[in-house]
């Protein structure tokens, strides 16, 4: 009886607090107990490292591994890191943005086809989207080195085409890095899009057609808004890891395509803690800010 009274109404709303219910207190503890593992996990592996990261970004930069770093609240680290690595930041976000758009353009038709047109092939196609995850991320990226290499059949075939310069090169260019990012993060775009489109009520599209909407208008006014949660989730899942990635740039790029992840990685290895930490914090803040603006602008707070 009391369980029923907590079922929220059709409009949602918060469950009523029933202080008089005799079972309340015990269930309250159960709730906390259920949250305990997750909370401890978050505290240990998110909050503690975060505090460490932020404080090491404020260390005195004149310290070193041998002498130790002292905490002096050196905020200047941020300005220094930004002036030195600002252009790499811009480049990282540009690459990640381009890859995200490419993923959306490739992923939407694919997810649409799987969700609405694939029929009995649907599960097979889904497996095909996920299948690359069965091999390692590194291995997949290394394979692109073979595909795009200077003497590979792809490059040789392209060079044979008219209008393509004979000294065309694909590997170790920005194009290769963006291609790698697009390829590696495409499933993260396709799966949420598929989840959204799969729930699409086709009768709504039919209704739009009945009301004299052209296929394109119906797509623009019915399908896309209904797929919005998937689009938002997919772009976030693609953009965020892509902006911090360093493997693609390391393996497919050249010294002028380095992304911020490469610099952070190198600086930590060289144990230049203050700069490395300041860059990490800035990357995190920049991504959170961008995501917040994006989610608000697309008016999808409730959908994510």
């Amino acid at each position: 009886m009391s369980a029923l009274s907590h079922v929220p109404g059709p409009t949602g709303g918060t469950p009523d607090v029933q202080a008089t219910d005799p079972g309340t207190e015990r269930r309250g503890i159960t709730g906390y107990l259920l949250m305990l593992p997750g909370t401890v996990w978050l505290l240990l592996f998110f909050l503690v490292p975060l505090v460490t990261l932020v404080s090491s970004s404020l260390y005195d930069p004149s310290g070193s591994l041998a002498t130790g770093y002292s905490m002096t609240g050196h905020v200047q680290n941020y300005a220094d890191a930004l002036s030195e690595y600002g252009s790499t930041f811009v480049r990282s976000f540009l690459y990640a943005l381009t890859a995200t758009i490419a993923c959306l353009l490739l992923g939407f038709p694919l997810a649409y086809a799987i969700a609405l047109k694939a029929g009995r092939w649907r599960n097979l196609m889904l497996v095909a989207v996920i299948a690359p995850f069965f091999t390692s991320f590194l291995l997949r990226t290394l394979s692109w080195k073979l595909l795009l290499g200077d003497d590979s059949w792809v490059v040789n075939a392209l060079q044979a085409l008219p209008l393509v310069p004979d000294d065309l090169r694909l590997l170790a260019t920005p194009a290769a890095v963006i291609t790698g990012l697009t390829y590696n993060f495409l499933p993260f775009m396709v799966l949420p899009l598929y989840a959204s489109l799969e729930r699409l009520d086709v009768r709504l599209v039919e209704a739009a057609a009945d009301l004299y909407a052209s296929p394109f208008t119906a797509f623009r006014l019915v399908t896309v808004p209904l797929a919005m949660p998937g689009i938002v989730a997919g772009t976030l899942l693609t953009f965020i890891p892509a902006a911090g990635d360093f493997i693609n740039s390391e393996l497919l790029g050249n010294p002028r395509t380095r992304m911020i992840g490469n610099d952070i990685n190198d600086l930590f290895q060289a144990s230049v803690l203050p700069t490395a930490s300041a860059l990490s914090v800035m990357l995190m803040v920049a991504i959170v800010a961008l995501v917040a603006v994006y989610v608000r602008r697309s008016g999808t707070d409730e959908l994510v």
Binding site: H6, P15, V17, Q18, D21, T24, E25, R27, G28, G31, Y32, M35, T39, V40, L43, L44, L47, V48, P49, L50, V51, T52, S55, S56, Y59, D60, G63, G68, Y69, S70, M71, L273
Partner: peptide
């Protein structure tokens, strides 16, 4: 019931202080 957001946040903050302390020690440098 009783697991209001405010109650949870208060509990989490207290727990967080306990667990976060070793992290805060990093604030003293290396």
């Amino acid at each position: 019931p009783d697991l209001s957001r405010r109650g949870f946040v208060r509990g989490a903050a207290i727990g967080g202080l306990g667990v976060g302390l070793p992290g805060l020690l990093a604030a003293c440098g290396t």
